[in-house]
């Protein structure tokens, strides 16, 4: 059985790509595969599109709305959706619902992203370290996380922001603290799995430093699952932030925020049920889209 000399064989792609850089079109990278699978997933694409519209509207709020979100009007209170000039009606103080929903997205989406981002950076680092180092470091980090875990997340967020005082920033701090523990736990689990793989042993066998192994071998293999988990937390964060606002601990009136709007419109639920439900619908749609999208991401990335 003779194996020909490699330099002598010239494949079709080699001949065609002669003179070009060596990459030569053979590489179907992992991320290219993920992108291809995502493109086929219709649910994920629709969800991403909806989220994109909501996000874009929130960012460019002054350009897509025509009313002042803070301008009240006693004679135009609780107009039903479809009224002239107020396509989604008005709230209990006569402010335009559509405008306030768009502006409310600014704070609600921000309070959804920010705590998750902070918690992913901190919790992810802690968890990956705990998982890779194992032993006592793992024990120390994960037992501290367990203390946070002992409290229901809503209760913990309420307690922390209650202790820090009401306000947007304190609410964000409270929610970041709440999310650190679950992110750390997921990261620890994934990192522990990866750490026991042969390729990590092989990397250690080269005598490379720990941080190098963490960055080049562990991180690329744990990032996917951690990001998927984090994206599913965004919806929880939006709901939680709305809950804090609802309890008067997050955003304070007259700022527009979906949770706060839900709170203040609650009293009008018998008079104008549709208006009262609208902020809830926004919360529901947004968090649902984040959830479905993270499901789609997981499916697309979960291939070996």
């Amino acid at each position: 059985m003779a194996m020909a000399e490699p330099a002598a064989i010239r494949t079709v792609s080699e001949v065609l790509n002669a003179g070009r850089p060596a990459r030569a079109g053979v590489s179907r990278s992992y991320w290219a595969g993920v992108r291809r699978r995502l493109a086929r997933d219709r649910v994920t694409i629709v969800c991403a599109a909806i989220l994109f519209v909501i996000l874009a509207a929130a960012i460019f709020a002054p350009y897509v709305t025509w009313a002042d979100p803070y301008k009240t009007s006693m004679i135009r209170r609780l107009l039903p959706p479809g009224s002239p000039n107020h396509i989604l009606g008005t709230d209990e103080l006569g402010r335009d619902m559509f405008t306030r929903l768009v502006y409310g997205g600014r704070i609600s989406l921000f309070t959804g992203f920010m705590p998750v981002f902070v918690a992913t950076v901190i919790g992810g680092t802690l968890g990956v370290l705990a998982g890779y180092l194992g032993g006592r470091s793992n024990m120390l980090i994960m037992r501290v996380m367990d203390v946070f875990y002992a409290f229901p997340s809503v209760l913990l967020a309420v307690a922390i922001s209650g202790a820090l005082g009401a306000g947007l920033v304190n609410g964000l701090v409270a929610m970041s603290l709440v999310f650190i523990a679950p992110v750390a736990r997921v990261s620890e689990t994934v990192a522990t799995q990866v750490r026991n793989e042969d390729f990590v042993e092989a990397a250690r066998a080269t005598g490379a430093r720990t941080w190098r192994i963490l960055i080049e071998h562990i991180l690329p293999n744990v990032l996917g699952p951690i990001l998927i988990y984090a994206s599913s937390l965004i919806s929880v964060a939006i709901v939680l932030a709305s809950g804090l606002s609802f309890l008067g601990l997050g955003v304070s009136p007259p700022n527009a925020d979906w949770g706060l709007m839900l709170n203040t419109l609650r009293q009008s639920i018998y008079v104008a049920p549709v208006n009262a439900i609208l902020p809830g619908v926004m919360i529901f749609v947004t968090s649902m889209c984040f959830n479905l999208m993270s499901d789609g991401l997981r499916a697309a990335m979960d291939v070996r």
Binding site: S29, F199, T206, R212, N221
Partner: peptide, 19 residues
């Protein structure tokens, strides 16, 4: 299992000398 699934093989080989 002994090759990092996220790295092109040349990078896996180059990791040791690089580090």
């Amino acid at each position: 299992a002994s090759l990092n699934p996220r790295l092109p093989i040349a990078d896996s080989i180059a990791f040791g000398p690089k580090s």
